[in-house]
């Protein structure tokens, strides 16, 4: 809004002094450069992926095989692995993030909010390779020794759900990768949720509390409906992160190009397949297929992030109307 004020206040380009014209040019070219960098990245990746797309056609998207020896590449398993691990991450991260946001806005005493909020945000600062090392050397053994046998014993016998939790307790696999991803995205989702919860006008809160609502009812019936689209935006933001995360997943997912219903079994994701195999891709078609995977990831994250932006923008539009 302030920007519009400037646009109104400053006369249009022709009458600007040369210093300002130069300055505007500088600003605009920097902005164009940002645009060009993304365009360039997308173009370079598309160019690199083209041989694989031309060679396999739609088979690349639906193919199950990933066979470097026979030069047959299909992206279905990495896509499946990416979606499943991200789904596990969201299923665990969304309630936890909501809980953290609830705790930070409603439960914690005022003096505790800042330090705990900062501690949760530190999780976002830990480099991804550290998550990978911790995942491989500490978390995966923990899952294999304690969590996965219990899950198999507890949920394995169930009729349909059981399939998800049957299998050898290896510690590596979609469940472990998904859980590590969820730790990595929790700070992003919870920060958005907390920030938008705090945006809800005080008058609304006071009205609800005045009517006798408990703190849970206040959040569930008043705050959440008010901020729904921004909360969804935050979730999609987290999803975008989870989809593209590379290093941490590479260590604990197992990179097996194989379909398995069990979440305990290893799989592969788009990013992990690229990181694991790019340096060893010894034919042009193999390399191109990996870059094509990168292109798919680019498209998927683009759509998810665009959705996130749109949802977040709806909140600010709604605010402006109020």
């Amino acid at each position: 809004m302030s920007g519009m004020a400037i646009a109104r206040a400053a006369p249009r380009a022709r009458r600007l002094p040369w210093g300002d014209r130069l300055f505007r040019l500088l600003l605009a070219s920097a902005a164009i450069l940002v645009l060009a960098l993304l365009g360039g990245t997308a173009l370079a990746i598309f160019w690199g992926a083209l041989p694989a797309f031309l060679h396999f056609g739609s088979r690349f998207l639906t193919g199950l095989a990933w066979d470097p020896v026979r030069q047959e590449f299909g992206a279905l398993v990495p896509i499946y692995g990416t979606l499943v691990t991200s789904a596990i991450a969201m299923v665990t991260a969304v309630p936890i993030s909501f809980g953290i946001a609830l705790f930070l806005t409603e439960v914690a005493p005022a003096w505790l909010r800042a330090p705990i909020g900062a501690a949760i945000e530190l999780l976002a600062g830990i480099p991804s390779i550290i998550y990978g090392m911790w995942g491989l050397f500490v978390f995966a053994p923990f899952m294999a020794d304690h969590v996965e046998p219990a899950l198999t014993a507890l949920l394995g016998p169930l009729p349909i759900l059981g399939v998800l939790f049957n299998g050898p307790p290896l510690g590596i696999g979609m469940l472990t990768a998904g859980l590590i991803l969820s730790i990595m995205v929790v700070p992003f989702i919870s920060a958005v949720m907390r920030d938008v919860f705090l945006l809800v006008p005080l008058a609304l809160r006071e009205a609800a509390v005045g009517l006798g609502a408990t703190r849970w009812e206040l959040v569930w019936r008043v705050v959440l409906p008010q901020t729904r689209s921004a909360v969804m935006g935050g979730i999609f933001l987290g999803l975008g992160r989870a989809l593209g995360e590379t290093m941490a997943v590479t260590f604990v997912l197992g990179n097996a190009h194989e379909f398995s219903a069990s979440l305990l079994m290893p799989s592969t994701s788009i990013a992990a397949a690229i990181a694991n195999e790019f340096t060893e891709a010894d034919s042009n078609l193999y390399r191109s297929s990996l870059i094509a995977l990168g292109f798919l990831l680019f498209v998927i994250t683009f759509v998810v992030l665009a959705l996130a932006k749109w949802l977040l923008a709806r909140l600010s539009a709604g605010e402006a109307r109020r």
Partner: peptide, 13 residues
Amino acid sequence: GTSVSWPTGVGGK
């Protein structure tokens, strides 16, 4: 090859 389509098993990095 340097990587193959494994019939079975789990992969370590």
